[in-house]
């Protein structure tokens, strides 16, 4: 496939738009104590979820620096997800209370800049919710597929490696 060049006004690279075999890239930041373990449980329980999701483990959902999210979109993510323990269950007791406020503000700022709401999501998934982990990944992949490739916030110099 030829090197992709970003299209105008936040459209995805021409190469990606034309490929019928396009598969979305979703980056999921999962907290070590709940959601990552939930993903493990989904795995050991042989529950299926799409391979589009690339999981990055973070020590706590409050470790999320919004720069991580921006960088993921710059380098080709079609969707970004942050998953952490349910409020009240944080391993560090208050991490997710803080991040609930921060990511609420940042999510709405992203949408204000023109990103579709589905492209950045936050979910609470506990270590016993393997089924929820798989369901969230399936539904997000479906939503992003329906939206199509993302070109917004994307670095024009980033080359498609699909």
């Amino acid at each position: 496939m030829p090197a992709a060049v970003n299209g105008p006004a936040g459209q995805a690279p021409a190469g990606e738009r034309q490929t019928s075999a396009w598969e979305p890239l979703i980056v999921a930041f999962c907290c070590n104590w709940c959601s990552y373990a939930g993903g493990d449980l989904a795995g050991t329980g042989r529950m299926e979820y799409p391979a589009n999701v690339k999981v990055i483990r973070v020590p706590c959902s409050s470790r999320m620096n919004p720069l991580f999210i921006m960088r993921a979109f710059q380098r080709g993510a079609d969707g970004v997800l942050v998953a952490g323990c349910h409020p009240g269950d944080c391993h560090y007791s208050s991490g997710n209370y803080h991040v609930r406020r921060r990511l609420s503000a940042f999510k709405q700022l992203l949408e204000f800049s023109g990103l579709e709401p589905q492209r950045f999501q936050v979910h609470w998934i506990s270590s016993s919710e393997g089924d929820k982990f798989a369901a969230v990944m399936r539904s997000m992949t479906g939503e992003i597929k329906a939206l199509g490739p993302n070109g917004k916030l994307r670095d024009r110099r980033w080359q498609s490696i699909t």
Binding site: L67, R71, A105, L109, S113, L153, D155, R157
Partner: peptide, 24 residues
């Protein structure tokens, strides 16, 4: 975090993060 090139994505990154850093 921020490249030196004048790419639109770098400018978006600067503006969204600057605004977020002063949020509240």
């Amino acid at each position: 975090w921020l490249g030196k090139a004048y790419d639109a994505s770098e400018t978006f990154l600067f503006h969204l993060i600057r605004a977020y850093h002063v949020a509240g």
